[in-house]
Simulated assay, not measured.
Amino acid sequence: MASSSGPLNEELQCSICLDVFNDPVTTPCGHNFCRICLNKCWKTNPGCFCPICNEKFSKRPHLKINTTLREVVQHFKEKLELGRSDVFCDICDERKQKALKSCLMCQSSYCETHLKPHHRVPRLKKHTLIDAVENLEHYICQKHERPLELFCRDDQTCVCLSCTEGDHRNHSTVPIEEESQEKKARNTNKYKHDKIPHEMQCVLTG
């Protein structure tokens, strides 16, 4: 799922798949969806209705690609790609490959090939890996100079293991990756319930 980067992204987001439109079509009531998402919705439900406003259509509308919206979406995707800065492997010598993961313990980023030891060597398997990022120094505790591997739910901040023995002793802490996944799940569920009527929620969760 594409992450929301602002109001424009939300305007270009299908409320069924929660991703940027792919072959957008417009219903008679004026709402936009991915063509494949809307067809799937109507295929699994009796009758045809708008998943946003619930307006029911007496017969199945003939859906045409909204070419203007499709061009806007394509332009948005191109700008999004240009705005992304790739993170490259720190180990590759000649031709640098894109990094898949960054290791908080090693303070290095690795491509698929050079990441393998972290999945194979027992000592390295204990290291904390995150999605490849730049400026790994920002993920180091300035007080203890140790990786920020944990998230303190009491203070809503990232902490290292040494922090849990001091100022954050007895606080509720979880691995950063776990907190990140839970927040993504909460945001996705909230968006679904805010944007999609009850009938559509039943389809998605059933």
Rank of each mutant, 00 (worst) to 15 (best):
Lys79Tyr: 01
Asp167Trp: 11
Pro117Asn: 01
Cys29Ser: 08
His193Gln: 14
Glu11Ser: 12
Trp42Gly: 01
Phe21Lys: 10
Tyr191Asn: 12
Asn39Leu: 13
Ala99Leu: 02
His31Val: 03
Gln181Arg: 15
Lys143Asp: 03
Ile65Glu: 11
Lys77Arg: 15
Arg95Asp: 07
Asp93Phe: 00
Val203Cys: 07
Glu10Lys: 14
Cys53Ile: 00
Val20Lys: 14
Val20Tyr: 09
Ser58Phe: 00
Cys17Leu: 12
Ile140His: 06
Lys43Val: 03
Gln107Trp: 05
Thr27Tyr: 03
Arg186Glu: 07
Arg95Gln: 00
Ile196Thr: 09
Ile65Met: 11
Ser85Ile: 13
Gln181Ser: 13
Cys37Met: 09
His144Ala: 07
Lys195Val: 04
Ser85Gln: 14
Ser108Arg: 15
Arg146His: 01
Leu115Glu: 01
Glu177Met: 15
Val174Arg: 13
Leu100Lys: 14
Cys152Gln: 09
Lys143Asn: 08
Val174Asp: 00
Cys103Asp: 05
Ser4Gly: 12
Asn39Val: 06
Asp93Lys: 10
Lys184Gln: 12
Gln201Val: 04
Thr67Ser: 13
Pro51Asp: 00
Val203His: 07
Asn22Glu: 11
Leu161Phe: 04
Gln13Phe: 06
Pro46Tyr: 05
Asp86Ser: 13
Ile52His: 00
Leu204Lys: 13
Glu71Ala: 13
Glu145Val: 05
Arg146Asn: 09
Leu161Ile: 11
Cys41Asp: 07
Ile196Leu: 15
Glu177Lys: 15
Cys160Phe: 01
Cys103Asn: 10
Val25His: 01
Arg84Phe: 01
Arg120Gly: 00
Lys43Tyr: 02
Gly83Gln: 11
His75Phe: 02
Pro122Cys: 08
Gln74Leu: 14
Lys43Ser: 04
His62Trp: 00
Arg35Glu: 05
Glu134His: 15
Ile36Ala: 15
His31Asp: 06
Lys192Asn: 05
Ile196Asn: 12
His168Asn: 08
Glu179Cys: 14
Leu80Pro: 08
Asn9Thr: 13
Phe21Tyr: 03
Pro147Ala: 06
Cys29Glu: 08
Glu199Leu: 01
Leu161Glu: 08
Thr205Leu: 09
Gln97Tyr: 04
Ser15Leu: 07
Ile91Val: 10
Pro7Phe: 08
Cys29Asp: 04
Arg84Pro: 05
Thr68Gln: 13
Asn9Ala: 11
Cys92Asp: 03
Leu69Ala: 00
Arg60Glu: 02
Lys98Leu: 08
Glu137Gly: 13
Cys152Ile: 06
Leu124Ser: 02
Met1Arg: 15
Asn170Val: 00
Ile52Ser: 09
Thr68His: 12
Ile52Ala: 03
Leu63His: 04
His75Asp: 12
Leu150Asn: 01
Phe151Glu: 03
Arg169Thr: 03
Asn54Met: 07
Leu82Tyr: 04
Asn170Cys: 05
Met105Ala: 10
Cys160Lys: 10
Ser15Lys: 11
Glu55Gly: 03
Ile36Phe: 06
Gly30Ser: 11
Arg120Phe: 01
Asn32Trp: 03
Val159Ser: 02
Cys37Lys: 09
His171Asp: 01
Cys111Trp: 02
Glu78Ala: 15
Cys41Tyr: 06
Cys41Leu: 14
Cys48Val: 03
Thr27Arg: 04
Lys96Ser: 08
Cys53Pro: 09
His118Ile: 08
Val73Trp: 06
Cys14Gln: 01
Cys141Gly: 12
Ile65Gln: 14
Leu69Arg: 06
Cys29Ala: 08
Gln181His: 13
Glu182Ile: 10
Pro24Asp: 02
Ile65Asp: 06
Thr128Lys: 14
Gly47His: 00
Met200His: 02
